[in-house]
Design a protein around this nucleic acid. Structure first.
Lengths: 163, 163
DNA sequence: TTAGCATCATTGACACGTCAACCGGTAGGT
DNA sequence: ACCTACCGGTTGACGTGTCAATGATGCTAA
């Protein structure tokens, strides 16, 4: 994997064939892993991973409620995305929204009993799927390495944040 | 893959807090990496990564053309997804479709000159983005490890294919 | 006071993916 | 010949995500 020819690791050259092959493997497999988790969750509980994120955040929140904007930044979503998603979840009775008493123009998102119920039912199978598809697939060393790789990639994303 | 203490790596227990933290880091960061690549590609060339996959496959195909079904399995898409996507790409003039001479009921997908042009313009910036965001972010060892992790995850996905 | 201006949230338009249903045609079995 | 079953491809419905535009409200500075 190493070489003495000019351009190696200068950030100036294009990826090598090996690097490109690994890149494709990596990005496609992680995407496939995400979809598989998603469809497991869907099959086990009729929730999407978006639903799960929202319900998880609300479950852990003070009084099972949160201001919309706060929720968005907590789970790292754009407000627009969250608004669309909350609309769909509200139609299904998983959450409801009401005017926020403390913040003018703010919307409070509340967990309904149906939402809390759905979340409870989804948690165990979801965690089991994570174990089966991720934890059990890797050696302990690989799990550590995966964490380090994620951290390094995240750091690079942050470093180049403005494109 | 065996266990001494109850539960460790037996596939029966839930993930530990550490494993869960790494899992979240890993899946969220790889997803973010995918979106960043997508938006870079979009900004550089007005192509989505779906467009890019299709154009890449067609560019490398005999006569810059391929039967729809063959194309679908080549890039690992469902036929329905491809059909929708080809419809959008056809509207933008990147490809066109015609009855296949050899295969009854088959559809031939052809690269247009505009499509070939768009693909040529997209390639270099796309590869550069891969280098900046993935290759340059990792040490050579980490790149190798990423490949091994991807292979292990893929193997597990295949092993548990039926859910 | 009022003219900007930022903030919180929603909306509409559109791209994208999946699922299930459908259509037209070919091939097998009886 | 006819019924069935499959195969290649398309379509519609719907959930999801992004972007840009739009209310609605409070803050601030001329």
């Amino acid at each position: 994997m190493t070489e003495a020819t000019p351009g190696r690791r200068g950030g100036r050259q294009l990826p090598t064939a090996d690097e490109l092959r690994i890149w494709r493997d990596f990005i496609e497999t992680t995407a496939a892993l995400g979809s598989r988790l998603e469809s497991r969750l869907q099959g086990d509980s009729s929730l999407s991973s978006g639903d799960y994120s929202v319900l998880l955040a609300l479950s852990e929140a003070e009084g099972e409620a949160m201001r919309s904007s706060e929720l968005a930044s907590h789970i790292g979503w754009e407000r627009s995305r969250l608004s669309h998603h909350l609309g769909r979840m509200e139609r299904r009775g998983l959450i409801r929204r009401q005017e926020c008493a403390t913040v003018p123009r703010g919307a409070e998102v509340l967990l309904t009993t149906a939402g809390a119920e759905a979340f409870r039912g989804a948690t165990y199978p979801h965690l089991r799927a994570i174990r089966e598809l991720f934890v059990d697939a890797l050696t302990p060393d690989q799990i550590v390495a995966a964490g380090e790789i994620a951290a390094a990639l995240r750091a690079q994303l942050d470093a180049l944040r403005t494109q």
